[in-house]
Amino acid sequence: MSVRRLRGRQELWLGLLGVLLAFGVCEAVSRAGLVRRSYLPPATEVLGRAVELAGDPVFLDGIGATLRAWALGLGLACAIAVPLGLLLGSVPLVDTATRAIVELLRPLPSVALIPLVSLLLGSGTETEVALITYASVWPILFNTVYGLGETDPLAKDTLRAFGFGRLAVLLRAELPATAPFIAAGIRISAAVALILAVATEILSGFGEGLGIFIAQAGLATDGTRDVLAGVVWAGTLGLVVNGLLVWGERRLFPWTPEHREAAGGGARV
């Protein structure tokens, strides 16, 4: 346990060191005049601006709008992908029948669909949510199908031997066993959804949101500082969301092999 904690602390310091180094290089390059300040403002200025934005009500409304679209899109993706994944994973016939369509749609880069969907749905929230949903469905869908396939046949047989039927096996064995896979899929999708939210806003160009802020700052003279401050916000949002989801997974699924040690008491034989 203590070795683990020590390693954790070491990782934390190393991570911090990496951040500080990158930060220092940006700062030095800009201050030394190696590149023009309007291309790369010093890191302290960018960070200062990012902090300043936290007190700007208009900017915060934009963040709120982006997060609302993100949450709505991700929620819709879950509502579609989890039941669909359960269906595909438990009825091989449906899986085979839809395999070709799924493999055709999957590699399409969602960002490339922005112009098309904008044409169909306009450049409002509908487009943004639709694109977020589309892009977020895949990781959740595939993780659900994969997780179902990984369910231990012995766990299913155990329930069957106690006289439980097909539906009970799905709900009491397959679904709980798949839940950690679904959660990991949602975590991947959460990052994808954030990318799509900001990208759609930047490309559609009007309304409100973090992407709009970045797009408009990019048009202004000497806007690089604001663009980078917006990017810092986007990165921070992603970091916080990921951290929260990892924490939630650890709380909800302490039994998975990677969490067991942390929860105290690996299987002793």
Binding site: L154, A155, D157, F162, A173, W255
Partner: peptide
């Protein structure tokens, strides 16, 4: 089908018990 009056114990308790 599976009879009602019956119970089974498998060798692999680690996989047969539900960890959640």
């Amino acid at each position: 089908g599976v009879p009602d009056s019956l119970a089974v114990v498998f060798q692999d308790y680690g996989r047969s018990l539900f960890p959640w």
